[in-house]
Nucleic acid binder design. Structure first.
Length: 117
DNA sequence: GGTCTGACCGGCG
DNA sequence: ACGCCGGCCAGAC
């Protein structure tokens, strides 16, 4: 029965779940970046993964992927929403000013999980 | 089962 | 200042 004698790593530690949890904790009217989430999870290099995780999360309800933008404050993932304007619309509805897919006062609305949490 | 891509970021030329 | 490239993890073909 020696199938796999792995060093028993914490496989339960999933990137996806953690990403969802953090995104869900993003306060209304606030935005964060993929890198910030990745950094909070301890893998700032895997920022790509965060975006990929959102891809699977965009179907979930309590996962405000629209509050997650790139480092420039650009709504890079807006194209993945139901409509290219859904992301911007939602943000504006929450009080976040978005012009040309760019979050205004991004630094002001920026919510760093590593800091807030 | 191997390979590639993916909503990024940061470093280097 | 700008462009390119490498890196990380996980899912899809």
């Amino acid at each position: 029965m020696k199938k796999k004698m792995a060093p028993a790593p914490p496989k339960e530690y999933r990137f996806f779940d953690d990403v969802y949890a953090v995104v869900r904790l993003i306060p209304k009217g606030r935005v964060t970046s993929y890198g910030a989430i990745a950094a909070y999870l301890g893998t700032k290099m895997s920022a790509r993964m965060v975006g990929w995780a959102m891809n699977a999360a965009h179907g979930l309800k309590e996962v405000p992927a629209h509050r997650v933008v790139n480092r420039q404050g650009l709504l890079t993932g807006k194209h993945h929403f139901e409509t290219p304007t859904t992301m911007q619309k939602r943000l504006q509805r929450e009080g976040v000013r978005v012009v040309k897919d760019q979050v205004q006062d991004f630094a002001k609305h920026f919510w760093d999980p590593a800091k807030e949490l």
